[in-house]
């Protein structure tokens, strides 16, 4: 385990400087992903998980900016890298898959254009060689008669097919790291299963590290090795996937798990987390979850630190569920 991790994010802070005030979308986030490892980055909408992903690629739109921390990609700090260096890494060493496959492919460009340009942006190869590689990539993600499909436009593909194309594009350069931003949320369950399987297989085969951003805990359960749970811009729980899902320490993770319908609890009332995600502009003092937390008390008005409460299992909570953790 002495090798450099593929991605090591340390105390990342990405803030948005809006007219209403500074929005701390990502506030002190740290995690590590090693080669061939899959990390689930879980959180509700607005928890900062997507911005975290974009921060790694240096694609945060203004008025957002990385204001602190470091993003070590194989030891190289991307938070302070120049635009040209980032561009060279994007697509070739670090790839991204987006949430909505209907929107990620340019509607007015043919699939072959969008694939070969991704190859030619990083490698000096002939147009013909690029095409051949594009076709091979399409075949790899299970698209039939790839040569023919290369000539099609995105609107001639179904949603699942488009996401496969996007994944094929992401895999073109056999990147070291893929950031997948809820890539299966917009798809049918059957397609979702197929794509999860493909991605998992590809990562294991190529040793690609994967950050899977999602709000779906069941996906994480079947896919990831480790999981980081985000709430209001901060990591609230982190650890091996079995530890976190079986013995959640943070009441928020616990609440998330409780709101997933399960066969084991048939007939019982589905638990839900009361209230809504707070606005990042009006966070309560201390723990951001305390207004919705059944365990909150006076002590929670002070922000707890992310602490290792069980071996390799971290949580940011004053009153963690230690009883279930069996520690």
């Amino acid at each position: 385990m002495s090798e450099t991790p593929t991605l090591e994010v340390r105390n990342l802070q990405t803030h948005f400087f809006t007219r209403e005030g500074v929005l701390k979308a990502v506030d002190d986030v740290s995690f590590t992903v090693r080669a061939g490892e899959i990390m689930g980055l879980v959180g509700e909408s607005g928890s900062g998980k997507t911005v975290t992903g974009f921060s790694v690629l240096g694609l945060v739109d203004p008025p957002g900016r990385i204001v602190g921390g470091s993003i070590l990609f194989k030891g190289e700090d991307l938070a302070h890298a120049g635009e040209e260096r980032l561009r060279a890494l994007r697509g070739s060493r670090i790839a991204m898959i987006f949430q909505d496959p209907m929107m990620t492919l340019n509607p007015v460009l043919r699939v072959d254009t969008q694939m070969t340009e991704a190859i030619l942006a990083h490698e000096q190869v002939s147009e013909r060689a690029a095409r051949a590689r594009a076709a091979a990539a399409l075949a790899m993600v299970g698209i039939a008669s790839p040569e023919e499909r290369l000539l099609a436009y995105p609107h001639q593909f179904s949603g699942g097919m488009r996401q496969r194309v996007a994944i094929a594009i992401a895999m073109l350069h056999r990147p070291d790291l893929i950031i997948a931003d809820e890539p299966t949320t917009a798809l049918d369950v059957t397609i979702q299963g197929q794509i999860l399987y493909e991605v998992q297989k590809l990562c294991r085969e190529t040793g690609t590290a994967l950050v899977w951003v999602t709000h779906d805990l069941t996906v994480v359960a079947g896919l990831a090795d480790t999981v980081s749970v985000m709430y209001a811009g901060k990591i609230v729980e982190q650890g091996r996937v079995d530890d976190v899902l079986d013995r959640p320490l943070h009441p928020y993770t616990n609440g998330l798990l409780g709101s997933v319908p399960s066969r084991n609890r048939r007939g019982q009332k589905l638990r839900q987390i009361p209230g809504m995600t707070p606005s990042l502009l009006r966070l309560p003092q201390g723990c951001a979850f305390r207004s919705r937390c059944p365990r909150a008390d006076q002590a929670c008005t002070e922000m707890p630190a992310l602490a290792e409460l069980a071996p390799g299992h971290l949580a940011r909570c004053v009153h963690p569920h230690l009883e279930t953790a069996g520690a």
Partner: peptide, 27 residues
């Protein structure tokens, strides 16, 4: 500029002039 496909084009590592000159311009 705010479309996902522009961000995706950037995520592919395309040079800015191609993002603007092809992906944005054609639209």
């Amino acid at each position: 500029l705010h479309m996902d496909y522009v961000k995706f084009a950037r995520a592919k590592g395309l040079p800015e002039r191609r993002v603007i000159g092809v992906h944005v311009l054609k639209n």
